[in-house]
């Protein structure tokens, strides 16, 4: 029996990925890079799902990853369409410059 990676390592790696995505959302001002950071957070959660699924021999986790991917694809299409509409109306994608509802 070969030794395998403990489950905790995968969970901590996915936590690092998630935190990197969260910091990216908070620090960056470019809407597209914020969007990519959100994709990174979704992927970190997917990694957690797959690792639990594999280590517990339960296919439910991989099913959830399948649905998360489908929702992420829908979100990508809609989000980028919103960025395009934003650029068309405001000539910018920097979220600091989009302050119409700020007083």
């Amino acid at each position: 029996m070969q030794e395998s990676v403990p489950l905790n390592y995968y969970l901590i790696l996915s936590a690092i990925f998630f935190v990197m995505g969260a910091v990216g959302v908070l620090t960056r001002r470019n809407a597209i890079i914020i969007f990519m950071s959100i994709e990174m957070m979704l992927n970190a959660v997917n990694l957690t799902f797959v690792s639990f699924s594999s280590y517990n021999s339960d296919p439910a986790g991989q099913m959830f990853v399948f649905f998360v991917m489908a929702v992420a694809a829908a979100e990508a299409a809609i989000g980028l369409a919103i960025v395009l509409a934003l650029y068309r109306n405001q000539q910018t994608v920097y979220v600091d410059k989009v302050n119409l509802m700020k007083w």
Binding site: S4, V5, P6, L7, N8, F52, S53, Y55, N56, S57
Partner: peptide, 11 residues
């Protein structure tokens, strides 16, 4: 959790 990756074909 279980720390051993079992041989399975769930993937």
């Amino acid at each position: 959790g279980s720390n051993v990756l079992k041989e399975s074909n769930i993937g």
